[in-house]
Design a protein around this nucleic acid. Structure first.
Lengths: 199, 199
DNA sequence: TAAACTAGACCGACCAGTCGGTTTAGTTTA
DNA sequence: TAAACTAAACCGACTGGTCGGTCTAGTTTA
């Protein structure tokens, strides 16, 4: 069986695992749920992954890989820092509007990171990279004279937290506030705080 | 047995439940863990609460009640909106610095809200109230002419998300960034975005 | 024909909640 | 005031069910 087919099979398992994860949470998600959801057999799942935990660790990698391609692309081409930030926000809006399930899963992984060292290590790395990426944008804006002299680390974290905060919309209602309007508001807000007055 | 003793017993259970919750997560937390942690017997716990779920639902109420006293106090006395906001932030810094365990538990409750209707309803209410409180402060600042004409709902949510974002520090490391420095940075940031230029 | 499966029985560990019984604190009786 | 009584508070062994992971015996795919 070729690599492609194997990748498809793995993706089939991970897709099922993702759906199960957001419905039940990690601890209450059953291998048999993944069996049902994926349409594969228990044997097949244990053929590709050696344990339940391995499945979910692979799920993190799967999505990190998907996201990092686009994210790195945003920073690579040199443009005004403000535009790069906007692209970043827009990417996550688009992501949210096309499918909220990944955001829901994220919450579960945060929770897991708090009590499992393997998940903690993996996510620590993911977030270090993500923060580094935002910091690069901020530094760029600072060096080019586009941005004020702000605390880059703290600002980067705030930006990240506001993006991750979209999880909130998957959980609760806020009057008629949409993620799009939310992100647009905080984009304006953040840029107002960052940019030097141009007049 | 008098009310006081009963309340003490319940607090003893809830304290233990909180510690167990952050160590194991909801689904993997065992009644026997609470037994061990509280020094009480299984029978005693089931005497006060009819199920595991009831214990944790009571835990939410317990802390909501504790927090709401202070929070409402901050808004009650009429002072400049910026000062009220600062007090809000300072309250959560103090809270975090004295004990991070409640922040960790919060994450678990968010996760639970995503898959359990009872927890969802309870937290929806908690957050509606909290958002309402922040909105009141923002409206106050707007009416008094202290603040610009911002999107109150979206700004309130962003403030809340940045506060809740302190959870991040219980999970991961960011270079040498502390919650205090983080909150101070975003306080400046937010106030800069909100306040009218005073010169 | 070897790898990639399917179906599902099975094992051992684990655990929420129950229940029969005991203790404690307080009240009534004689 | 001491014995008898009562109900709340509490104890912990036990049960019925659950589930991750294994394994077997056969089938399909490339």
């Amino acid at each position: 069986m070729n690599q492609d087919k194997q990748q498809k099979r793995k993706a089939q398992i991970l897709d099922a695992a993702l759906r199960v994860l957001v419905q039940k949470g990690y601890d209450s998600s059953r291998i048999d749920d993944i069996v049902k959801e994926s349409g594969m057999s228990k044997g097949a799942i244990y053929w590709y992954y050696k344990s339940k935990k391995e499945v979910y660790l692979a799920l993190v990698d799967h999505w990190v890989h998907r996201y990092s391609v686009t994210l790195n692309h945003i920073v690579e081409e040199k443009r005004p820092a403000a535009d790069e930030l906007k692209d970043l926000f827009n990417f996550f809006i688009a992501q949210y509007e096309s499918d909220t399930v990944v955001f829901k899963a994220l919450l579960e992984f945060w929770s897991l990171a708090g009590r499992d060292e393997d998940f903690h290590q993996k996510l620590q790395l993911v977030y270090s990279d993500f923060l580094y990426l935002i910091q690069k944008i901020l530094e760029l804006g600072k060096k080019s004279g586009e941005f004020k002299d702000i605390d880059i680390t703290a600002t980067a974290l705030s930006i990240m937290i506001n993006i991750e905060g979209m999880i909130w919309f998957t959980l609760f209602d806020v009057n008629d506030l949409t993620p799009r309007r939310y992100i647009q508001t905080i984009t304006d807000f953040i840029l107002a705080g960052l940019q030097k007055k141009s007049h």
